[in-house]
Each structure stands twice: as C-alpha cells, then as structure tokens.
C-alpha cells in the first residue's frame, strides 16, 4: 500500500493531465485546473521544505565537524540573519512583525534585509559570475589549440563568433563586403550550424522528457518514491 497508493495517484493525475490537453471540455479542463492549483500550493510548501532541509544538512555538518565545517556555519549564520531581518522588519514595502523598523531604516538608508541584499548579496553573486571571465580566458588559452581538423574548426568558429560579438569585430571589418563583415559571419554561424545542432538537442530532450514522463505515469520509474 505504501507504494501502490502514490503510484495510483501519479497514474490518475498524469492520465488526467494528458486527457485534458486533448479534450479541453468539462470535466477534464476543470479537473486539470484544480490539479494545477494544488501543484502551486505544494510548490509553495516545497520551498519551506527545501529551506528546512538546507538548514538541517548544514547544522549536521557543523555538529559532526566535517571537513570545512566553518563554511557550513557561515551558511547557517547568513540564513539566520536574513530570515530574522525579513521576519522582524519585512522587505521593501511589506512590514514585518515589528513593523518597518524605521529607526534602523533611517540609520542605514533602507530596511536591513534590503540593505544586505543590495549592498552585499548582489555584489557577491555578480562577482562570482564575473570570475568566469578570468577562468574562461585561462582555459581558452590552454584548450583552444589547433591539434586536429576538428579542434581547428572549433577554434576558428569560436574566434569568429567572439569577434563578431564585439564592437571591435564590427569596426575591424566595416570596410569589407557584407559577407566578410564579422557580425554577419557570426550571425550566420549562430543562425544556421548552431541552430541546427540546438534543434537536434531540443528534439532529443523533448523525446527524453516524454519517455521519462511515461515511465513515471506508468509506474516503471519509481525512484521518486524513495526506493531503489
């Protein structure tokens, strides 16, 4: 029963959603609408569950003094600080349990939650993403070597696209005929060979999704039940 009931629910919900796409009439349209609303409610709870799970995992790592436990402690402290500021003083125009925290807001210029989000979190995230530029430069220097026909092709295409995506590339080839203009060459590579490859990937992924959805609905794939 522990496995059969969830499998039966998944089967009925899956079949109902498929039928509602092909028969957009009552009761199917109404039932699928109700299921969607249920999903949105469950998705809301899933966020809370995810936060609790994250907290539990980090607390366990700190208590067991596992490798780099200090980072997990930093995660817990960050979580607690943002949570408390959010709950106590709210964010943006929403009030918290203690109102808007005018005194603190006047002191730092905005609500504590917003202040940390704008002045700390945003910059840290942007800096992390920006670091990619440095690593890509170093990796490109080592990896883009014309060792074979395939790697030469990859190298040439990447250089053309890179240059075509900059203002310098356009400026360098401004005086050349349109078919030699770097942004046009880059656009051709992106619109034709790239799009052809991407379409193949999208179609493959789409078929994969259909296959795995059918496996779930028919109860062949059962890993989501927590079993083997």
């Amino acid at each position: 029963m522990k496995y059969k009931l969830p499998l039966l629910i998944a089967f009925c919900a899956g079949i109902l959603m498929i039928l509602s796409e092909f028969i957009p009439r009552r009761p199917f349209s109404q039932l699928s609408g109700t299921l969607e609303s249920w999903f949105l409610i469950i998705a809301g709870f899933a966020i809370v569950l995810g936060q609790l799970s994250l907290l539990k995992l980090n607390i366990m790592k700190v208590f067991s003094k596992s490798e780099n436990w200090q980072y997990h402690l930093a995660a817990i402290i960050s979580f607690a600080v943002m949570f408390l500021f959010g709950i106590l003083f709210g964010m943006q125009r929403q009030a918290g349990l203690l109102g808007h925290g005018e005194m603190l807001s006047n002191l730092i210029g905005s609500k504590p939650f917003d202040y940390i989000f704008i002045n700390l979190y945003q910059h840290l995230m942007a800096a992390m993403f920006s670091l990619l530029a440095f690593f890509i430069a170093s990796a490109a220097y080592r990896a883009f070597i014309a060792r074979s026909l395939e790697s030469t092709l990859l190298l040439s295409v990447s250089v053309l696209v890179m240059l075509g995506n900059t203002s310098i590339g356009a400026a360098m080839t401004n005086s050349l005929p349109a078919y030699l203009h770097l942004p046009n060459i880059s656009a051709f590579i992106m619109d034709f060979p790239n799009t052809a490859g991407q379409r193949a990937i999208i179609i493959g992924a789409g078929l994969g999704v259909i296959g795995s959805s059918l496996r779930l609905i028919l109860g062949i794939e059962r890993s989501w039940l927590g079993g083997k």
Binding site: A140, Y141, I145, A146, G169
Partner: peptide
C-alpha cells in the same frame, strides 16, 4: 560595458593565438 567586453574578448583571442604559436 561593451568596450570592456570587446577588449576582454580581444585579449582572450590574443592569448589563444599565443597558445597556438607556442604549441606549434
């Protein structure tokens, strides 16, 4: 930001050329 991105791309390309010449 476009000027910065253009120059960064150019530097990457120069390093790729240096890497290829060194390899050859």
């Amino acid at each position: 930001g476009m000027d910065a991105q253009s120059i960064a791309h150019l530097i990457i390309i120069i390093f790729i050329i240096i890497g290829n010449v060194a390899w050859y």
